[in-house]
Design a protein around this nucleic acid. Structure first.
Length: 569
RNA sequence: GAUCUCGUAGCUCAGCUGGUAGAGCAGUACACUUUUAAUGUACGGGUCCUGGGUUCGAGUCCCAGCGGGGUCACCA
């Protein structure tokens, strides 16, 4: 038995009392409802017979009449319990004992009654019958909101909120809203793609070669094949194989896994939506992306603007477009076109950027951009034409072989989407993989693995294709105004919690402790047999007798010799 | 990984230069038949994260650890 608080003990007692009265605290039968609470309040009409189910969230007991709030998935409504309505006969137990004493804040009940307006004008339900649906034996945090809308005693501790999201969702209404919005964003995207007959697909999460992005993978092992397998860092190479196979458009909401640091914008598992469309190029994809995002914003907010902190972001089409060279010139005054690696290295040094010999041309330009430009792009902006070294899966630019047909969408100073005219020349692709491989030799631990099967697929021929990936978690953050990725993931990664599992009384008895003491050991500070045995007899002796005195236990004091015998056993 | 910071009742948080652990909400008991942060009276509730150290004395000071958060680094 865990150590339980006084309030938990009282609730367990109430649960047992219900059983003794013949009321099952966890009944099996379904409870049919007629309404959701918000639908009932919306265009409220008195005199309607309703059946509702939910949690009791707040009780105001005034002798023979009580008000409470019933919380269901849609919201809450006030419910009115009256002793003489619930118990028209002599026996008032149902109201006086069951409702007032044995039910608690947080319990699930079903109610049957009639809607009415109170004299203060609050839409309410007069309860004629109620059914216990599930007992809550652990008290929820009590969060109250006053008339002015000020929230009191909010449940705010991030650790508790993320570890116990179930509690967070019950007591913090806005949290639920964030996840409803997340679902709506995804649904809007899906509808948009499906309307154009693009196919939603599933590709492997367990991959023998973690391709498609340069990132440290999680590794696992398949026993039957006796090979290492990696959790995917991206699904790009699989979706392109499907374009080779003849699909016109394919997309996947891909849960990706990267074994890297965690912070406000990174979680080890996260979601990217990737879409590939045949016979298109990156210009087409820019238009497509704009339309998609504007649509999402409209469906979520009914307008194209979103507030993030003090900033207002407008997702109205068209978005601004700059090439990477233009962006760098705009914010540093330096023209990087046609510069050698050495020249670029000295430009970086002039701009106060730390460089080293492992950095190639592409990496140097990337540093310039991310240090000097990225944070300036608050409004949605497409940055195009990235250096070839940074984009091994992207087609060479039609006008300049040192660049690629790539764009990233920058919003609020961070990357939101990334897209290419896909590289479909198998010879070029093989060369680029080999370059990546030599980068890896040079010490770049993020360089990519070579996927020979993917090269073979390209050799069979892939039509010109444009692909785009968009970070769903970051998109949701932007559209819900959340500053941490943990607030848009239902269960963000946390260090696992340690649970002290207390030994049960039998284990102590087996270890030689008499039964009358065994049940008290966890409470006295020895949750397990091991904890007991790791202490000195004198310490145990004193603690137990102290505990006995404090709790006025009606058992005789333990003797030091007894304790010594337990430890020997 | 570096650094700053937090950890006290079921929840939100006070607790000063070290001196008997506090409040509000929640809980229990009583009262109260239209309340809504219900109200009134009374009462109970603590491993002050863990382990060491300094001290006559540690929630408070020092060291180490555990857990959370922030910032930086890492992360196409």
């Amino acid at each position: 038995m865990q150590n339980i608080s006084e309030q938990e003990r009282i609730r367990r007692d109430a649960m047992n009392n219900l059983r003794e009265m013949g009321i099952e605290p966890f009944p099996a039968a379904a409870f049919d409802t007629t309404h959701y609470t918000n639908a009932l309040k919306d265009g409220f009409k008195p005199g309607i017979h309703v059946r509702l189910a939910g949690r009791i969230m707040n009780r105001r007991i005034m002798g023979s009449a009580s008000f409470a709030e019933l919380l269901d998935s849609s919201g809450r409504i006030q419910v009115y319990f009256n002793r003489d309505i619930l118990c028209p006969d002599e026996d008032k137990t149902l109201y006086n004992t069951v409702f007032k004493k044995l039910l608690d804040f947080g319990d699930f009940i079903g109610v049957e009654g009639v809607t009415f307006l109170t004299k203060t004008g609050e839409p309410s339900v007069e309860v004629h019958k109620f059914t216990v649906l599930s007992k809550s034996i652990k008290p929820l945090p009590v969060v109250k909101t006053d008339e002015a809308g000020v929230v009191h005693d909010a449940f705010t501790d991030p650790e508790l909120r993320y570890r116990m999201r179930y509690v967070d969702l019950v007591v913090n209404e806005d949290v639920k809203k964030t996840f409803l919005t997340r679902s709506k964003i995804i649904q809007t995207m899906r509808d948009f793609f499906n309307a154009q007959n693009y196919l939603e697909v599933d590709t492997p999460v367990l991959q023998a070669i973690p391709g498609g992005a340069a990132a440290r993978p999680f590794i696992t092992h398949h026993n039957a094949l006796n090979i290492p397998l990696y959790l995917r860092v991206a699904n790009e190479l699989y979706l392109k194989r499907l374009i080779v196979g003849g699909f016109d458009g394919v997309y996947e909401f891909s849960r990706n896994f990267r074994n890297e640091g965690m912070d406000r914008t990174h979680n080890p598992e996260f979601t990217i939506m990737e879409i590939y469309v045949a016979y298109k190029d990156y210009f087409w994809m820019m238009d497509f992306t704009e339309e998609m995002i504007e649509r999402i914003c409209l469906s979520v907010h009914g307008k194209t603007t979103v507030k993030i902190g003090a900033k207002e972001i407008d997702f109205k089409r068209p978005f601004a477009r700059f090439t990477m060279a233009q962006a760098i010139e705009k914010y540093t005054g330096v023209n990087i076109e046609n510069k050698s690696e050495e020249e670029l290295r000295s430009i970086c040094k002039d701009q106060g950027i730390e460089v080293n010999e492992a950095m190639g041309k592409g990496k140097l330009i990337d540093e310039l951009f991310s240090e000097k430009c990225e944070h300036h792009f608050i409004q949605p902006t497409f940055i195009t034409d990235y250096p070839i070294e940074m984009s091994p899966l992207c087609k060479r630019h039609r006008d300049n072989p040192e660049l690629t047909e790539r764009f990233e969408l920058m919003v609020n100073g961070t990357e939101l989407a990334n897209a290419y005219s896909e590289l479909n020349d198998p010879i070029d692709q093989r060369g680029r993989f080999e370059e990546q491989f030599s980068l890896a030799q040079r010490g770049d631990d993020e360089a990519m693995f070579i996927d020979y099967d993917f090269l073979r697929a390209l050799e069979y021929g892939m039509p010109p294709t444009s692909g785009m990936g968009i970070g769903i978690d970051r998109l949701v953050m932007m559209l819900t105004g959340q500053e941490s990725i943990q607030d848009v993931l239902l269960f963000p990664q946390m260090r696992p919690e340690k649970f002290e599992t207390a030994s049960n009384a039998d284990a102590f008895v087996e270890a030689g402790v008499p039964i009358e003491w065994a049940e008290h050991l966890p409470g006295a500070g020895f949750p397990t047999v091991e904890d007991l045995k790791s202490n000195k007899a004198t310490v145990i002796h004193q603690k137990l007798n102290g505990y006995r005195k404090k709790n006025k236990l009606e058992i005789s004091a333990v003797q030091l010799e007894d304790v010594e015998r337990w430890l020997l056993a």
